[in-house]
Design a protein around this nucleic acid. Structure first.
Lengths: 111, 111
DNA sequence: AGTATATGCAACCATTTGGTTTCAGATTAA
DNA sequence: TTAATCTGAAACCAAATGGTTGCATATACT
């Protein structure tokens, strides 16, 4: 297994990105089916620019990738990032179970 | 197992609450050791009122409970809420694996 | 009773967030 | 070549966020 070291900033970005229902929906969609930003924008009741900004927030958190293809940018959800976020929460549970007492002791460790 | 139905608002609150390092630290601490708001406030380089507000955000997301005890309010982390958040992310993984195609189809279901 | 401590809450402030409209550049299609 | 489409980026705006100080109230201590 790979060792992940997520900075506080990175964790902030991940949870902040997931704290918006439009962005969660974009992740959900693009996990199973890639889509261009235009295609995504048609699904929501907001401007293209607004959707574009949501995608930028998701990309900054590494929750999606933006793959150039001609004049389009194909958006693809990143299941690995979701798994990392899930592991972060798993660490809280381990703390609760008393297995470890400091979160940062685990963030830089294999699992 | 109990069936959880988390509204979009509730999910927003949970991830928003987790998107701040001070609040994550409060959850971490209070999962293993209860503390009054004053005790928590002494741990951070900000005012009592600021910590009080962070605790309010966590309580609104049900990530901690505020238990009155004399003039104090004892803060206790809620491991069940963490587990629910983890399950939310688990649903994304299930979507990715193609087991389900709509997140809301699972949110109102046993697991 | 009087003092110290713990909390709650309001007012205020700067920055961030989530939306908008507008314009420019790149790519594709006719 | 010309027109249509897709993206990027800037300027702007209202509301939310994360901090502050100040004050009131409740409880505990001497």
């Amino acid at each position: 297994m790979v060792a992940y070291t997520l900075s506080d900033d990175a964790v902030d970005r991940i949870f902040k990105a997931l704290a918006d229902r439009t962005r969660r929906d974009i992740v959900r969609r693009t996990l199973t089916q890639q889509a261009s930003i235009s295609e995504l924008a048609r699904e929501y009741d907001m401007s293209f620019a607004a959707v574009q900004k949501h995608v930028a927030v998701l990309e900054a958190a590494d929750l999606v990738a933006r793959i150039p293809k001609g004049r389009e940018r194909i958006i693809q959800g990143n299941p690995e990032a979701i798994r990392r976020a899930q592991q972060l929460l798993g660490h809280f549970e381990e703390i609760w179970r008393g297995r470890i007492d400091r979160l940062d002791a685990l963030l830089a460790t294999d699992n």
